[in-house]
């Protein structure tokens, strides 16, 4: 799996989000996108997973030497963003069962309960999401994201609303997945930048695409 971002520009009508961004996220490292609010961190993640199209530039995604199509990218990508929501009238287990069937991952109920246990929700498997706290919803979103064992893991502000135990779950997921997948994390929290950042892209309206 390889990603190469070449001279990427994104505009909404005439409003430029960022321009001429080039970067190469690497496997085995925690790749981190940072920058102030509105610098385009979330937009970059949406562009990488094919939810949006760039105004200019390209994102080359290759797996086993063959280039991936937009559908192929979605199939192997786990995307966690603050915009993501799951079904509030279904239970935690029903939500995972639904997305497992939809994605064609034939997981048993026991395996799905294991996923819930991984994020510390084993005792809330049969509770509807409507009764979940914001932090519990964030944990379930993490379970949803790792459901497909993604080869590309995109985490946008993953620690939002999580307690210390929840943050440990995020740490565990990042360290487990960066060994076998490409992990890209977007955050503007300087503590997280210091904690996770191994290959950093700094997005700024004044100084776009600065990499360190």
């Amino acid at each position: 799996m390889r990603i190469k971002i070449n001279n990427l520009t994104k505009k909404y009508n005439r409003q430029e989000v960022f321009s001429d961004v080039s970067w190469q996220p690497e496997m085995g490292k925690c790749n981190l996108v940072t920058g102030p609010n509105g610098s385009g961190k979330s937009t970059l993640l949406r562009l990488i997973c094919g939810l949006e199209r760039p105004t200019a530039g390209t994102i080359d995604l290759t797996k086993d030497t063959s280039e991936l199509t937009a559908a192929g990218v979605k199939k192997i990508t786990g995307l966690l963003t603050p915009d993501l929501a799951l079904y509030r009238h279904l239970t935690a287990l029903e939500n995972l069962q639904f997305f497992a069937k939809l994605g064609g991952y034939f997981l048993t109920t026991a395996e799905l309960k294991d996923k819930l246990a991984e994020v510390g929700l084993n005792s809330s498997a049969d509770t509807p999401l409507a009764a979940f706290s914001t932090g519990m919803k964030q944990r379930l979103k993490l379970a949803y994201v790792i459901l497909k064992r993604p080869a590309l893991l995109l985490l946008d502000e993953p620690n939002t609303n999580l307690d210390s135990e929840g943050k440990q779950v995020v740490n565990k997921i990042i360290s487990e997945y960066k060994a076998k997948s490409i992990v890209i994390l977007a955050t503007n929290d300087q503590e997280e930048v210091g904690q996770y950042g191994e290959n950093i892209l700094f997005l700024d309206h004044c100084n776009p695409g600065y990499c360190s």
Partner: peptide, 16 residues
């Protein structure tokens, strides 16, 4: 409205 369309789009093709 509920924001679930994103999870749906990431898990299945538009045709499905």
């Amino acid at each position: 409205d509920s924001g679930t369309i994103l999870a749906l789009k990431m898990s299945a093709t538009a045709e499905i």
